[in-house]
Nucleic acid binder design. Structure first.
Length: 243
DNA sequence: ATCCCGATTGCCT
DNA sequence: GGCAATCGGGATA
């Protein structure tokens, strides 16, 4: 038997309502191969099995980067599905989304967390502060770092043949009964009612699922009273809503 | 030109 | 649990 590389998901997979895609992405494996030496360790391949994702529904979704229409940064979201939207966050992190739906809907799924299933050594090099392997891709910026995703991958076509970044095809990797949902993490502008968009989805009992934090209000300028600390952190449990 | 603040993380007490 | 780091996007003047 010739051993071909595992195939990437077809574009049609992403060309559907964003919540459907989000559900189907859980349990699947994202692979990124870098042949250059930009990492200082010669590049290589890292694979992450997704355990947590978050859906964003385009201009009508107040929590989406596309909420204020098309801008240079969000242009990729308004393009065809099956591409990566990678953005710079808090002046120091990169986070990766997969563009979904028909072209122009600007919907996308944020890759929030996963389990490194291949390329452990390279992932550890890229995430030197991770204490345990379970923390390597536990969080959107951590996941992007472990995979080696950044500015260069913004706009990358995951469905192109031999793309360096892809989602592996495979049989239904998770049943809907294993999927839990809850409010999105860190998203403000939802009127304090995150329940309006319970579009964070994760797999039951996975240790790699990121901690939940409510949107943290910015501290005021000097002189103002410090804002009440709202960085509540909790482990997602079955107490949150189910599908 | 300037201001505000973010789809976060990790270190500090 | 609190909060600093760090900088670019988008709104406002």
């Amino acid at each position: 038997m010739g051993s071909r590389p595992p195939e990437s998901l077809p574009r049609a997979f992403f060309d559907r309502p964003v919540l459907d895609v989000a559900r189907d992405l859980l349990g699947r494996v994202v692979v990124h191969t870098s042949d250059d030496g930009v990492d200082g360790v010669g590049g290589g391949t890292v694979a992450v099995r997704l355990t947590e994702v978050e859906a964003y529904a385009g201009p009508g979704d107040p929590g989406s980067h596309a909420a204020r229409g098309r801008t240079p940064r969000t242009a990729v979201m308004f393009g065809p599905p099956g591409h990566a939207y990678v953005y710079f966050s808090y002046g120091m992190h990169w986070c990766a989304n997969l563009v979904c739906g028909p072209e122009g809907t600007a919907s996308a799924v944020l890759l929030r967390a996963g389990e490194v299933v291949s390329g452990l050594e390279l992932a550890r090099h890229r995430r030197p502060t991770a204490r345990k392997d379970v923390d390597l891709a536990r969080g959107p910026a951590r996941l992007a770092a472990a995979l080696g995703l950044g500015q260069v991958q913004d706009g990358a076509d995951l469905c192109a043949p031999s793309s360096a970044l892809r989602v592996l095809d495979g049989r239904s990797p998770s049943s809907s009964s294993e999927i839990l949902t809850g409010p999105r993490v860190g998203v403000s502008g939802e009127g304090g009612d995150g329940a309006r968009y319970p579009w964070r989805l994760w797999l039951t009992g996975e240790p790699t699922v990121s901690a939940y934090r409510v949107a943290a209000p910015r501290r005021r300028r000097a002189g103002s009273a410090p804002t009440t600390s709202t960085t509540t952190t909790t482990r997602p449990t079955d107490e949150e809503s189910t599908q």
